[in-house]
């Protein structure tokens, strides 16, 4: 069978391989080459230089990079804290209700992120759902909570909630109940059970969830634009500007490459640390 497996395996991977080759690997290569083209050219047939990278490091773009990663980090931490109890409930406690929550969360994924963020604008703005009703009913008022950094982090937390929740559920489901019970039986406190049993055994889920939310948040743009106004310019925003208004493809490419390198390194590191077969519910390793 093994030679058979080799052949069929390779054949089955072929369509996916073609898709990835022409629409993922090739464009990555193009963007890499573009990043070493001289400023403001639109073809790849120039003598390479590193002027774009020089610009990135001298023109304050690093600040955007740091903002992006900082907010991504903050939202990942917040996400972990708020998702853990729910994920625990869904993996170990809820039955029918868990399925209901799963469906409810998945359905939000199918609603364009823009619409949901726009909904938050309508909810949070001055004269929005919350402030408007508060004023109408109690006469109290407050300034809109929009257009600052915490609300951007809030938006990121909101948008990437499912990407933390579902891997965490998978991870916690991998913790055997009897391991927790045995620990409790041996006298472990709730805290000790969490640190000694839950955390290490659900590590694959935690790694995948944190990685996904961090990486997606780091490359996000809509949250800062819609909720944050212009308080902070994130890296993805800079990239878009460089390509559109700036008409500077090499600069945009160089910025993209920096983002890609960080994200790629993190992803590969994370993906390598988990046993995919196991977390996907496979029996073989």
């Amino acid at each position: 069978m093994e030679r058979q497996d080799q052949r069929i395996g390779l054949l089955s991977a072929l369509p996916m391989g073609v898709v990835l080759l022409i629409s993922f690997l090739a464009p990555m290569l193009v963007i890499a080459v573009f990043s070493v083209m001289p400023q403001k050219v639109f073809s790849l047939l120039h003598i390479p230089d590193f002027s774009s990278y020089k610009l990135v490091f001298t023109q304050g773009y690093i600040k955007s990079v740091l903002w992006s990663f900082g907010m991504a980090m903050a939202s990942t931490v917040v996400l972990f804290v708020i998702c853990w109890p729910l994920a625990f409930g869904m993996a170990k406690v809820f039955k029918g209700f868990g399925i209901f929550i799963t469906i409810a969360v998945v359905v939000t994924l199918f609603v364009s992120e823009n619409i949901r963020l726009f909904g938050w604008v309508l909810t949070l703005m001055k004269g929005g759902l919350i402030e408007g009703h508060l004023r109408a009913w109690t006469g109290l008022t407050f300034e809109g909570v929009l257009y600052n950094t915490p609300v951007i982090v809030f938006g990121l937390v909101y948008a990437y909630f499912p990407f933390m929740l579902f891997p965490l559920i998978q991870g916690i489901a991998m913790v055997p109940d009897d391991a927790r019970q045995a620990a409790a039986d041996l006298g472990a406190t709730r805290r000790q059970i969490f640190f000694e049993v839950d955390l290490p055994l659900s590590a694959p889920g935690i790694v995948i969830g944190s990685l996904l939310s961090f990486v997606l948040a780091a490359g996000a743009m809509a949250e800062s634009k819609l909720l944050g106004g212009q308080t902070v310019i994130v890296i993805a925003d800079e990239i878009e500007t460089a390509f559109t208004y700036g008409q500077n493809w090499p600069l945009g490419s160089a910025l993209s490459i920096i983002l890609i390198l960080v994200i790629g390194a993190l992803s590969i590191f994370g993906i390598n640390r988990v046993n995919l077969d196991l977390i996907m519910g496979g029996r073989r390793t």
């Binding site: 990835l20 464009p27 963007i31 997606l216 390509f243 890609i260 993906i271």
Partner: peptide
Amino acid sequence: FQKLILLPIFFPQAVLGLALLLWFNA
């Protein structure tokens, strides 16, 4: 193959879109 498949999911989509734009242009 398993790892390669996961990579695009982890990548920022806006950047993927831009990279494709450059590629189509090329």
